[in-house]
Design a protein around this nucleic acid. Structure first.
Length: 364
DNA sequence: AACCCGTGGAC
DNA sequence: TGTCCAAGGGT
């Protein structure tokens, strides 16, 4: 046994597996991606569930599977359609990567999701966690699927005090899971760990008295379950002030532009906006100047109508919203459109700009 | 390794 | 109200 796995001395892997799998068999939630083992359905669910709660995923998953019931259907769809189905779910590169990977599977693997770590791990958007999840759940391959739940649960089970925010720590847990995973039922083993982390072994105030594996848990026996896992704090988000314009052409339609194809909210539509320079308060002039420079629009900015705040994990937008008029004709391009109010439904906006629309266009 | 990439719910 | 954070991956 490798030296860093000495922590497994005395750990009763077989009875742990039985207790965990027995519990999961009885107590697992009915979830829409558990109705069968279709690798495509499992795959879509795993991508949607990345950093996203089950309850948030459910409605998106239903709509997505109705629109793209098979791998073939998704592969044949246009990217705009896929992105639209993802609107509001966040982390939009997941949708683009999934779409590209599904096309790859259709072309290279004849539409069958690969069942080997080497092949499936090469697909866009499929990292070490998702690889193990699909292999174990859809194909019964005993690969680790180490997510935040698994690290939290096993930090407590084995009383491991490594910082789970460090990339290196995930590798340690992968090595551990490789040693203790059930070879007979890796699907229920992996899912059981995640389900336990979601329902019982939760971050704060874990329900140890309901836990099916508490007799295996060192943190519980030592009374330190609330101290684990160790997780270093993320940086504070930066506050970014923006001025955004609800700009109407002479025919009454609204100006929207498409964001760049990389970076934050890539390819999403938005109201024209500019990052305000620190210490400068002439928001109207900055917005007007920007519209002229960036889009060649002669804009007359009228009234300030309010603010919209939107927080990401790593930054916060303070958006100052203005109304304005565009003088003269507007040349539409691939990244600059004039929309009627009805046409907003067909375009993909991030939550923040969809909020501006709902708040200051629809209700106005 | 460290940083970027969304959103909404729980407390 | 602020804080944390959820079935991570790409670069």
């Amino acid at each position: 046994m490798k030296e860093h796995l000495e922590i497994l001395q005395g750990f009763q892997a077989e009875t742990f597996q039985q207790d965990l799998i027995g519990w999961f068999t009885e107590e697992q939630r009915d979830l829409p991606w558990r109705i069968n083992k279709d690798p495509y359905r499992i795959w879509v669910s795993e991508i949607m569930l990345q950093q996203t709660r089950v309850e948030a995923v459910k409605p998106f998953y239903h709509r997505f599977m109705e629109k793209f019931p098979t791998l073939e259907a998704l592969a044949d769809a246009h990217e705009d359609e896929v992105l639209k189905a993802w609107e509001g779910l966040g982390y939009y590169s997941r949708a683009r990567n999934l779409h590209a990977a599904v096309k790859e599977v259709k072309e290279t693997y004849g539409g069958k999701v690969p069942d080997t770590p080497g092949e499936i791990g090469k697909l866009k958007g499929v990292g070490p966690y998702t690889k193990g999840a699909i292999l174990s759940i859809a194909y019964g391959v005993p690969e680790p699927a180490v997510d935040g739940n698994v690290m939290r649960v096993f930090s407590r089970i084995l009383s491991i005090w490594d910082d789970i925010a460090k990339p290196k720590t995930r590798k340690l847990f992968e090595d551990i899971i490789r040693e203790v995973i059930s070879k007979e039922n890796p699907s229920y083993f992996n899912q059981g760990l995640m389900e336990l982390g979601a329902l019982i072994c939760i971050p704060k105030n874990p329900a140890c008295l309901l836990c099916p594996v508490r007799q295996h848990c060192r943190a519980f026996h030592e009374g330190v379950q609330k101290e684990l896992p160790v997780k270093s704090k993320a940086k504070d988000p930066v506050i970014v002030p923006l001025a955004a314009g609800i700009l109407r052409a002479e025919d009454g339609r609204y100006v929207v532009n498409k964001r760049p194809s990389s970076g934050l909210l890539a390819n999403m539509w938005e109201f024209p906006n500019i990052e305000l320079q620190e210490g400068v308060s002439k928001h109207k002039q900055q917005l007007s100047y920007y519209a002229k420079e960036k889009f060649g629009l002669a804009v007359e900015v009228d009234e300030f109508v309010g603010t919209v705040q939107h927080s990401f994990t790593h930054r916060t937008w303070d958006i100052f919203v203005f109304r304005g008029k565009v003088k003269g004709e507007v040349r539409e391009t691939d990244s600059l459109k004039l929309l009627t109010e009805e046409e907003f439904a067909e375009y993909t906006f991030s939550r923040s700009h969809r909020n501006i629309f709902e708040q200051y266009v629809v209700q106005a």
